[in-house]
Simulated assay, not measured.
Amino acid sequence: MFKKVIIAEDLDVMNLGIQQVLKDLNIVDFQHSKFCDEAFLKIRAAIHQNEPYDLLISDLSFKADHRKAEIVNGDELVQKARELQPNIKIIAYSVEDKSYRIKSLFDNAGIDGFVLKGLNSIEELKKAINIISSSDQKFISPEIASALHEKNNYEIDDFDILILKHLSSGTPQDDIIVILKDLGLKPSSKSAMEKRLSKLKDFFKANNTVHLVSIVKDMGII
């Protein structure tokens, strides 16, 4: 079982619930932070003191306040925590239910568990902690596990990310086509670009290109 845990959660009621779960599991050495920057500093300090945390439990969404934040959301926090301390176990604890965003956390940040906040979240969090503390298994809340394993008609790849990044910076579509051709990337024709964007809009349920860019920015994809 884990001996030392750091909680990143800005809502007091959720934080207290997580703390109670840890106490129920006889984990008494834990700290919490309401800000991602603060949580990251505590993780780094613990490493320097040769007393690293075993587990990070983090929300994904944090409300902004007057402080200037370097790490603005849980997605960035878990990614930076993984880079800083590769062996730390990470559980994302969130109301987020978008399959792409959750999948990216497993694929890119290597999280060990995802618990969906809801009616059964307390028991699921206990189960997640037990599972990942005693094995290399991953834990995903049953409500979203099926969605993650569904085969989509369209998969987002690095090519799509490149297009979305250029769109977000205001690059006209015709100029993006030229950039793709210069990079030797295919497909790079106007019709292929339009088809690609159409599939992306369908995938993210976006009304138009501006809406599409807004969605992927909110999801932390770009």
Rank of each mutant, 00 (worst) to 15 (best):
I91W: 05
Y93S: 00
I131W: 06
S58D: 11
E124R: 01
K190D: 09
I57L: 08
S133K: 11
E123L: 08
L162C: 05
H166A: 03
L125I: 14
L105K: 00
I57W: 05
F35W: 07
N26T: 15
Q19A: 05
L22K: 04
K98M: 14
K199L: 14
K190L: 11
D65T: 12
D175W: 01
S94W: 13
T171C: 15
A192R: 11
A69L: 11
D112V: 06
L60T: 03
I47M: 13
F35V: 13
L185G: 08
K195D: 14
H149M: 13
A192I: 09
L119A: 12
Q173S: 15
I131A: 04
P52D: 02
C36D: 00
H149N: 14
N50C: 12
V115Y: 04
A109K: 04
N208L: 05
D174R: 14
I88V: 09
I132C: 05
E83V: 12
V210I: 11
E9C: 03
K63S: 10
D107H: 05
I129D: 07
E9L: 03
I132G: 03
Y154N: 10
K117D: 05
L119T: 08
F35R: 15
I129G: 12
K165M: 03
S121W: 00
L84P: 03
S99R: 09
A147H: 09
G113I: 05
K3R: 14
E123T: 06
K42R: 06
H66R: 09
I111N: 01
A92K: 01
E51W: 01
A81C: 05
D37I: 07
